[in-house]
Design a protein around this nucleic acid. Structure first.
Length: 432
DNA sequence: ACGTAGTAG
DNA sequence: CGTTCTACTACGT
């Protein structure tokens, strides 16, 4: 008697992503934005980072600078919103929690995307995709598309197909479509549209006669590895439906943390830069404390605007900390080592602090020859405690602790209320 | 070990 | 005048 088959159904990957995520979040709380061209702007209201389909139809590109759009916005009926990351972060958490109901095996890939390990017949998978879409919409108000295939790369491609082909109603199970259809799609899809293939690789691939997803899938994978790298070889196999990019474990903190921002007004002096370094270093300290991590290396940098070609300057320092640390005093001191390189009178448009080589904060009794006096007295934890009780702006060291917002604080003139995270900004509903 | 290139969202 | 921010992997030295 034959043993029963272990899995009668194949293992698949579902890729779920929210349509125009930031715009959709804004629409949940402001339904009059439905069916209108809407964009969400980057920090400082600099450029468009999310566009509704109507805005895309107006020809507004990703990254289009607001100063070039603002004049014509009213005539076009275009609505712009400043980014409200607190709102998006919270909506994202709701979606991800919900997706956990459909699979115990999920990978949160970005703020608005997740991969889910799923099984079933092709028809069952179709129903599952429809169910996911309907439930996310019912419980969060956000529209998603679902792509299902045997590899992550194809699942992404299926999702993209679901977004573009209206007849699919937002769900595409790749292997369920007629062979002829998927072959045509691949033959028409430029390589730059494939996950992992950017503009540089696209150019090099064209040189080898590889223009479409079909060309790449049918290319010799060993040749691809030799001409490019193992990453692109995996892409070739993934396009053939062979999973090569595994589902990743959830990582609590990444290998590095970066704090960087463009300024609303450029910084031209050492005092200003000193304040900025203080703020970033303390933000870094706060995040490290929150995750109970320490860093061994800190890099601080500043740069002039890319568009200011006659004044190009990018000072940077990398500092090996005296020992693994999350201490705000240690980090601030390290970040300020950038200052001697800062030229007075040069217009710095942005700056940042990056901490690397992160590792878990040592337990209490570990031998620590490099502990500073501040650390020994636990000032870092104290600051962290006060921040969590009274808000991140309640306390800080030196110039970074100043209350009045310096001139380089973020410009966010069109920001929506933080509906879901601040009691005073709750949505008001009026009964007719 | 560290810096650079390339990519994603 | 002005064009986001964060984080990864691979590779070459």
């Amino acid at each position: 008697m034959p043993t029963p088959p272990i899995g009668t159904s194949q293992s698949y990957i579902a890729h779920v992503d929210v349509n125009s995520f930031y715009v959709s979040c804004e629409r949940v709380f402001e339904p009059k934005l439905e069916n209108r061209p809407v964009i969400v702007l980057s920090n400082n209201d600099g450029c468009a980072v999310a566009r509704s389909s109507e805005a895309k139809a107006l020809g507004i590109e990703m990254g289009a600078p607001w100063f070039k759009l603002s004049a014509a916005a009213e005539r076009m009926g275009l609505v712009a919103k400043s980014s409200n990351y607190e709102l998006y972060g919270e909506m994202s958490a709701r979606v991800m929690k919900l997706l956990g109901r459909f699979s115990a095996w999920t990978e949160i890939y970005s703020i608005d995307e997740a991969f889910l390990g799923v099984r079933g017949t092709l028809d069952e998978l179709q129903l599952l995709g429809e169910k996911i879409k309907a439930e996310v919409y019912r419980l969060t108000g956000l529209p998603v598309c679902v792509g299902i295939a045997t590899s992550k790369t194809l699942a992404k491609m299926a999702n993209n197909t679901a977004k573009h082909l209206k007849v699919l109603n937002g769900v595409c199970v790749w292997d369920r479509a007629p062979k002829q259809t998927t072959e045509n799609l691949l033959a028409r899809l430029p390589v730059v549209e494939i996950w992992g293939i950017g503009p540089r690789l696209t150019k090099r691939m064209r040189g080898l006669g590889i223009w479409t997803a079909k060309d790449l899938r049918d290319a010799d994978e060993v040749r691809i590895r030799d001409k490019f790298s193992i990453v692109q070889m995996r892409t070739v196999l993934e396009l053939r439906g062979i999973p090569c990019i595994p589902m990743e474990e959830e990582r609590e903190v990444k290998g590095q943390l970066i704090f960087s921002r463009s300024f609303s007004d450029p910084i031209t002096d050492r005092v200003g830069m000193e304040q900025v370094m203080g703020v970033y270093a303390q933000q870094a300290s706060a995040r490290l404390h929150k995750h109970q991590k320490t860093a061994k290396i800190l890099t601080a940098w500043a740069m002039t605007s890319y568009y200011n070609q006659n004044q190009d300057h990018q000072p940077a320092v990398t500092v090996k900390l005296p020992g693994p640390s999350a201490d705000p005093v240690v980090l601030t001191k390290a970040a300020k080592q950038l200052l001697p390189q800062v030229l007075v009178g040069v217009k710095y448009a942005r700056a940042g602090v990056m901490v690397m080589d992160l590792r878990p904060m040592a337990m209490q009794e570990t031998f620590e020859p490099f502990v500073s006096a501040h650390e020994a007295r636990n000032i870092g934890s104290l600051l962290q405690q006060i921040r969590s009780d009274h808000g991140v702006k309640s306390i800080g060291l030196g110039a970074a602790g100043l209350q009045s917002g310096p001139s380089w604080e973020m410009r966010r003139e069109m920001m929506s209320p933080r509906y879901t995270t601040h009691w005073k900004e709750l949505l008001t509903v009026k009964a007719a």
